[in-house]
Design a protein around this nucleic acid. Structure first.
Lengths: 186, 186
DNA sequence: ATTAAGATTGACTAATCAGTCTACAAAAAT
DNA sequence: ATTTTTGTAGACTGATTAGTCAATCTTAAT
């Protein structure tokens, strides 16, 4: 029903399959089942569509990560919950995850304002700063810690995708990886 | 003099600046100072050029990593040398490094044969297998270890690029990061 | 010297693409 | 009921693009 969302869904699918360069707006409109004109009614340019899609996906991811933080949770438990929810989000939304990777290492990234990026990571950053202040995490620059964590998630996901394990083995690898990371940052 | 190399250099620069999609072959030829026809004489299609550039860069990177392995080197020393040479290669060749990232998370990756990829990583993989067998590295799947190492290098590089530190501080972060990784994998 | 093979050029083309425009329909506001 | 706003369509266009081609130049072999 919601044409705007249909357009984003179609764009996501095609961008991941054919790349930004290989996906004409006409194909996106076609895949979304709307006219060419409708696409440009909602998004003034193709670039704007690409950026809007990134923000759309990132907003949903960070909402997922930030949600259901328990009350009396220990720092380690929170850290693990964040790690696991990121990991499982990536596994359950492979297309979205691949898109963010693709976007991240493309010139499009510079079209997103710092403000927007900070908005997406504030919750996580605040938690990590607390954990550093509480002397639980190592006394390292918070940006470094953040980057180490994210890149580990990318890496582990890549491994899981490449070696198609069953759900059980997958869970093992994820838990084992968490222990590695936890040892590293504490 | 070597037109083929000039074409690769020009393509590299433009791809990183404008993305694969935003770089017409005509601009590549222009930047390289050759004619349109010459470009297509060496590379039958644009895709072929993109893939050739990836292989060209990766070959030089792995040659750099695989070189100067000392004789009586301990496993830790070898591991550190590999880590450091990768890190410094990334710092000294930021455009090349960014290109590989961009390529890696694009649909172009599937155009590179498994064989070609294995050729690039064989040396490093063999060393890691030795280190696992010698019970120095943790008993983990080698692909997982490899992925963890590479993604950490990506991540640390990203951090270093974002926070423009002086050479001294940069070195500190790199050494400190090595210790974190070494603790993690042993 | 002559030939053959590859290198280089740049004009050319057929196809494609991002984005526009006009027309019309639906809904909302007055 | 009528006006205004918003959504939707799809034909259209001017610019651009990947790739071709025939002609010339260079190099090396015979």
């Amino acid at each position: 029903m919601d044409k705007q969302e249909q357009i984003l869904k179609a764009a996501l699918k095609l961008f991941v399959e054919y790349g930004f360069h290989g996906t004409p707006t006409s194909k996106i409109a076609q895949e979304a089942g709307v006219s060419n004109g409708t696409l440009f009614h909602y998004y003034k340019t193709k670039d704007e569509l690409v950026v809007a899609l990134y923000i759309y996906i990132k907003t949903r991811l960070s909402a997922c990560i930030d949600s259901n933080r328990g009350e009396g949770e220990t720092i380690k438990a929170t850290f693990k919950r964040i790690f696991l929810s990121s990991m499982y989000w990536a596994i359950e939304n492979p297309t979205e995850f691949q898109f963010t990777q693709q976007f991240h290492s493309s010139p499009y990234l510079s079209m997103v304002s710092d403000e927007e990026i900070k908005k997406q990571t504030k919750c996580l950053m605040d938690f990590m700063q607390e954990a550093i202040d509480a002397r639980v995490l190592k006394q390292l620059p918070i940006d470094l810690l953040f980057t180490l964590l994210s890149s580990q998630i990318y890496g582990i996901n890549e491994y899981l995708v490449a070696s198609s394990l069953d759900a059980e083995k997958q869970k093992e690898v994820i838990n084992l990886s968490f222990d590695l990371i936890w040892d590293m940052v504490t």
